[in-house]
Design a protein around this nucleic acid. Structure first.
Lengths: 221, 221
DNA sequence: ATATGTGAATTGATTCACAGCG
DNA sequence: CGCTGTGAATCAATTCACATAT
């Protein structure tokens, strides 16, 4: 069904959704592929092609209804149902995420938290009870957790991911700067600011000082 | 000259670098494209092709030197020189980043912080002085800032980005969930966990919620 | 013997031009 | 007419097979 959709398209759809939210809040009722493209910093072709993977949502000659397209995108992205979230690893980042106010913006409900620190277990942080990570399978089933935020130290990441998978959770938002392995039916999205920072370094550094014997790679295009 | 390199390749190089760091810390001195591929969860073809954009770093028949390739990747990614960083927006996220311990792992030096809150200005947070955002141009020049972390509220993001650009800073690590416009010679890398969460929603929705006891062929490798 | 480096083939994504519909 | 929707063409990225070097 949703196979064959470029992952770049999915990323852009998320951007269009945010743009449309802004337009909607600003009271605009109609927009166009040109307008969306400008806001999202892509081409109008791209906007139309991205949407075309999922259907025809516009009106020829007059563009798109803002609330209409907003709803379609929420539907496409699965943001019309509540997602039940657990945080695995209540260190600084985990606690910060637990306190994050906009989490429920699209019906992401924080329902549980996990850690291995006896001092934290049994307490309430960010409005949810902290359980021992050993109880992940039972608590996750009990609370119908859909998505886990993985915020443990790097050395504990793969083991925690394995626990998460074993609990029947099928989506992991991985904040740990490492590649975690999961079965094919468990989706992992990674948020790694150190990686982004290193990419930035690459682009700022510009050309790599060539080694003496290397001058032929310039061609391309 | 670093044009024509796929951005996906740059992302993977960052992953290879991290894997190599781990191997190096573990005391390994040699590796192979197969080994790196397994750790980075890509194919060995991909590893070799990615590296081939920049040169020939291995030895046929025996693979790569871990410290050797580590150094090459650091050179390629621009991580052999110190980068001077400023944080723009000392809210919760900005303060958390200021306290982040591993920032200097690859010579990222935090040299200044900015905010508009009079209560914060003049104080020291996370080891650096907080200046008024109006002073960005002078302080940034004075401290030779290379990279800005953009961590202001969403409504202030574009204006802050404009200030950053005006200060002569060429790299922005954008933590704000919005598209910021900059001239072509200013590079922006975005870290947006809400966007990642929505992508996750897309990939999960439509899938049947798994039962905790369902098959787990988790181990992998 | 073994694992790299790379042109060629294949697959995938983006761009384009215009057909189609309000 | 204007702007969307889409097949076809172009461009880019990945995969592959094997020649090459140690």
């Amino acid at each position: 069904m949703s196979k064959g959709i470029p992952s770049a398209t999915v990323s852009r759809l998320v951007t269009y959704l945010r743009v449309l939210s802004d337009l909607d809040k600003a009271g605009l009722t109609r927009t166009s592929s040109d307008h969306l493209a400008a806001e999202a910093q892509v081409t109008a072709f791209q906007v139309r092609k991205d949407l075309a993977y999922f259907g025809s949502f516009g009106t020829r000659g007059s563009g798109y209804s803002v609330p209409g397209l907003l709803l379609e995108l929420r539907r496409i992205l699965g943001l019309i149902r509540p997602w039940r979230v657990a945080i695995v690893g209540m260190g600084r980042l985990g606690q910060a995420l637990a306190d994050f106010p906009q989490l429920d913006e699209y019906d992401f409900e924080l329902v549980a938290a996990f850690d291995v620190d006896p001092v934290k277990i049994g307490t309430t942080l960010g409005g949810v009870d902290v359980h021992h990570s050993d109880d992940l399978p039972t608590v996750a089933a009990d609370k119908s957790v859909d998505i886990a935020f993985l915020t443990v130290p790097v050395d504990a990441a793969q083991a925690a991911a394995d626990d998460i998978v074993r609990s029947g959770i099928r989506g992991i938002l991985n904040f740990v700067p490492t590649v975690v392995s999961t079965p094919d039916d468990v989706r992992v999205e990674t948020v790694d600011f150190l990686a982004a920072l290193k990419r930035l370094s690459y682009y700022l550094h510009g050309q790599v000082p060539a080694k003496p014997d290397e001058l032929l790679i310039g061609g391309s295009r």
